[in-house]
Design a binder for these strands. Structure first.
Lengths: 342, 342
DNA sequence: CTGAAAGCGCTTACAG
DNA sequence: CTGAAAGCGCTTACAG
């Protein structure tokens, strides 16, 4: 059952010949708002349908200088937060007439990725990948391609960014844990070079300090499931009194791993022996088997803002650096002891 | 901090002028294997670097007829199975020099999506979305664009497909549950029009029949979290003896929801009161809070096969219909009572 | 409103 | 090995 390229693609010239009109007319028939008579457009559309013609988006991009392509850079999709935003942002951009060119980034091939993105003449870039090659930022600024960093912030970069208030979020957690009566509050960090981790940690320490506490112990989980499990083991495989009575884990993805270790491996109870709080409020945080107390980022608003920032810059043809910050909200579930009273 | 399009893009002509060579020479310098002297290439590369030149992939696509673009159609990313495969296939295609154009499909805008895909001159299509517009399949066959259906099969479609043996998988589950001593075995279906559900269900019923059993009751969850929860409620909110003692849930994503309802809402124990088995073996199935018995699809192999089938057809320029079927494997965890003995 | 023509930035025969 | 030239399939001034 093999068929070799059945038909050479139909071009606007073919349609023109078939409809006995000029090639320009065919082009106009497919350009919204072009000056063409109703009658002519109908004739052309009919011919086009008969021949199965579709305009070549690449040719259009060439001549118009607008590819309709937006690059999305993502590092990994195992943390649910990213697939969800990828899905939503993609839908939004599609609705606005753009297409998403997906780039899975690798710590390795930075230059290669930068090169590919630019070769495809994308009109904008969304970066949800932690590793921002500074070369990419620079090249984009040079070329006038707007870049929006999603869920990260780089002070020295000319790129716009959309984040939630991770400092406030960290502080909310500290406050909640202290008011919950915890005495030995630990922290499991994500990737230490990420702005999310930096801000959550800073806010958290500040919050503790406001209550006269300091962090009981700090480990690094690197935003990975296994990294978090190791951190949890080291932290909690100790007698009562030497282990934390609460842990703030820098994101939900790691928090699930931490809860597994605490409950299943070490046989401790959550929150009775150890309270656990995560960050992101991914869908699984609401799953009853975890029922994770966490901080919700204003996901929908962040997604909207990302699309808006990007499209606005593309359409006006000017690149601004803007930073949109959305409020964070604590979602109290059962994985952390609740403050009594108040 | 606004900067308006700083520099007009650098073209091969600019580089040619700067290096005092012909434009064709510049093109050759960037074409692997082109006939050009070492000396000339170096001179050109140097000029290109100075000017910040990068070849325009769209222009190349126009003239060469190869866009380097592959469309991936995905319906939703909340079931982990899909983000993971999206990530892996994307990486594989990128490594082979292709770029992924992402299309989030909507039950609504079928024609619109079809049209966009074809306009972008993609060289191949991966469909991981359930809704295959038959128009897309037909158009692609006409145009000679290879299509690979991932994790689904449509007998009447000219598209290739990569699936695991869902019939065998369903049978494995029936066998395992019966041997585990279950007497009232229920089924919660996914999307009834999907080939995965159809095959898993068929295999499951066959397996039951081989042991002289029939399904105790059948509900439909539609592959959605909420749909599954409702099904579980109806099935299990009854006295012992009237409710199933085991449920095969057509995918893991729904199985988590079912376990939540059974344990948390209804206060029953898993597997003591009800055994639960899922399908897919997504990462979360191994999370200790669920520890879900499930059937593992040969994910890595399926991903490899998808990329291979597609690239092979692209590179040979001929479209075959091929169906790759991979074995399914039962992964025994603790959510279902294990067969005793042997 | 309509058509002929130029041109987007490349690749690739074709001569030399 | 190198360059001049044609051409990929469109959009868009420019005349009429």
């Amino acid at each position: 059952m093999t068929e070799t390229n059945p038909s050479t693609p139909v071009t606007s010239g073919d349609v023109a010949r078939h409809a006995k009109v000029s090639q320009s007319a065919v082009s106009r028939a497919f350009t919204p708002g072009a000056s063409i008579s109703q009658k002519m457009r109908e004739k052309i559309l009919k011919s086009a349908a008969e021949l199965g013609y579709r305009p070549n988006a690449l040719a259009r991009a060439m001549i118009s200088g607008k590819s309709g392509l937006i690059a999305m850079l993502v590092a990994y999709l195992d943390n649910q937060f990213y697939p969800i935003m990828l899905e939503q942002i993609s839908r939004k951009l599609q609705q606005s007439g753009y297409q998403v060119l997906l780039f899975m980034t690798d710590p390795g091939d930075q230059d290669e990725v930068v090169s590919r993105i630019l070769q495809y003449q994308v009109e904008g870039i969304v970066m949800a990948s932690a590793t921002l090659s500074s070369e990419l930022a620079r090249e984009c600024a040079r070329t006038g391609i707007p870049v929006v960093l999603f869920n990260r912030y780089v002070a020295t970069s000319p790129a716009s960014s959309v984040v939630s208030d991770n400092i406030a979020g960290g502080r909310l957690i500290a406050d909640y844990l202290v008011r919950g009566g915890h005495q030995r509050i630990a922290f499991i960090a994500g990737a230490e070079d990420s702005s999310t981790n930096r801000d959550r940690e800073a806010g958290f320490y500040h919050g503790l300090a406001e209550h006269g506490q300091t962090v009981f112990e700090r480990m690094v989980g690197g935003y990975s499931f296994d990294g978090a499990a190791n951190a949890a083991r080291e932290l909690c495989n100790r007698p009562h009194g030497e282990r934390p009575d609460a842990i703030f884990v820098a994101n939900d993805h790691m928090a699930f791993s931490v809860m597994d270790v605490i409950r299943d491996e070490l046989g401790l109870r959550v929150p009775k022996d150890v309270s656990v709080i995560g960050y992101d409020d991914v869908p699984q945080a609401a799953w009853k088997a975890y029922d994770l107390t966490t901080v919700s980022q204003a996901g929908a608003e962040m997604i909207d803002a990302t699309a808006r920032l990007l499209l606005e810059q593309i359409e006006t043809g000017s690149v601004h650096k803007k930073a949109a910050i959305f409020p964070a909200k604590l979602v109290a579930r059962s994985s952390a002891r609740r403050p009594s009273g108040g």
